[in-house]
Every structure is written in structure tokens, then in C-alpha cells.
């Protein structure tokens, strides 16, 4: 085995220290070292988006980041959206209600991408929404229910924040994500 390097990072707020080989991908670190298997690995070359996590608040492909590059970073995974047994996050609840998933393989990636989108743009335009999720592939749903779920979560989050801004109409028939 090659040289091990020490890293320190937070994952969902918990501080972790580890010794890792430079070639260890962040996706594998999250799954095998941190034991958080909600982050999925599909293509391992940046195309499918299943491995999307937030690094310092920005959505990133964890399969295209080495764990050593995340030294000092704050990482958020799907497990960080809601504690086990606690009430689901608005996005998770909306994906459930709107049938935004079937097999669920892509879902954690969509949830993290959408979480970042709604934090940056609480009321995204259709173009912003489609641009955001264009980086995530789903082989099951045909995307329309995912778009509805994000719009529904937008309304739920706005209601929680009490900002009273009416959510935009569902973008169910917007074309090609």
C-alpha cells in the first residue's frame, strides 16, 4: 500500500480524522470508511450524479474528488438531511409524496442536488431547476415526478420558513431536463 495521509473533515457535522491513501475517492471514503451508504456510486466518471454530495455547501461528484482533497472540508450526505427516525426533510417527504423515485438508486444524488439548489435559490426558475438536475440521471421516473417533487419541497420549505412567497406553478410539462 502506498503512503497514507492524514485528513480531518466533518461529515454531516461530525468531525472525522482518518489516514487515507491519496487515491481513495471521497465516494469510497464516505461509504466504506464513514459507513454512510446512502451515497450511491453508479458510473464513477462523473456522468450519472448518483454520488452527489455537498462539499462546503456546493454540490459535487464525490467520485471525482479524492478524499485527501476534502481535508478541512464540510461534507454533507443524504444522511444529513434528517436524523434516523426523525421527521423527513421536506425534500425527502416531497419525493415520497410525488413518487419522485422508483428504484431509488439516483435519489440521494437528486436530493443533494436539489437541497443545494433550494438553498441558493429558494424559488428557482424552471431554467435554474432544469440546469441543476440536468447533472443527475434517472433511469426509472422520466423526471417529471422529480420536478414536481422539487417544486413541492420548494413550497414546503417556504411554508416552514414562513416567507409567504407563493411557490411557482409546478413545472411538470417543462421540456427535456
Amino acid at each position: 500500500m502506498s503512503e497514507q495521509l492524514p485528513i480531518r473533515l466533518t461529515v454531516n457535522g461530525a468531525e472525522l480524522s482518518a489516514e487515507v491513501e491519496p487515491r481513495l475517492l471521497l465516494s469510497d471514503f464516505i461509504r466504506h470508511r464513514a459507513g454512510l451508504t446512502g451515497t450511491h456510486v453508479g458510473c464513477e466518471h462523473g456522468v450519472c450524479g448518483a454520488c452527489t454530495v455537498l462539499v462546503d455547501g456546493e454540490p459535487q461528484r464525490s467520485c471525482l474528488v479524492f478524499a485527501v482533497q476534502a481535508d478541512g472540508a464540510e461534507v454533507e450526505t443524504v444522511e444529513g438531511l434528517a436524523a434516523p427516525g426523525a421527521e423527513l426533510h421536506a425534500l425527502q417527504q416531497a419525493f415520497h409524496e410525488e413518487h419522485g423515485m422508483q428504484c431509488g438508486f439516483c435519489t440521494s444524488g437528486f436530493l443533494m442536488t436539489s437541497a443545494a439548489l433550494l438553498r441558493e435559490h429558494p424559488h428557482p426558475s424552471d431554467a435554474q431547476l432544469l440546469d441543476a438536475i440536468s447533472g443527475n440521471l434517472c433511469r426509472c421516473t422520466g423526471y417529471q415526478n422529480i420536478i414536481r417533487a422539487v417544486r413541492s419541497a420548494e413550497a414546503k420549505l417556504a411554508a416552514q420558513a414562513g416567507d409567504g412567497t407563493p411557490a411557482a406553478a409546478p413545472a411538470g410539462d417543462a421540456d427535456g431536463a
Partner: peptide
């Protein structure tokens, strides 16, 4: 630059 990949690519 808005045409380069996706937000998850452009963030790195």
C-alpha cells in the same frame, strides 16, 4: 461558461 457541464461539475 453556463454551457460547461452541470452545476456539480462547474463547482469544482
Amino acid at each position: 461558461v453556463a454551457h460547461v457541464g452541470h452545476p456539480q461539475i462547474r463547482s469544482r
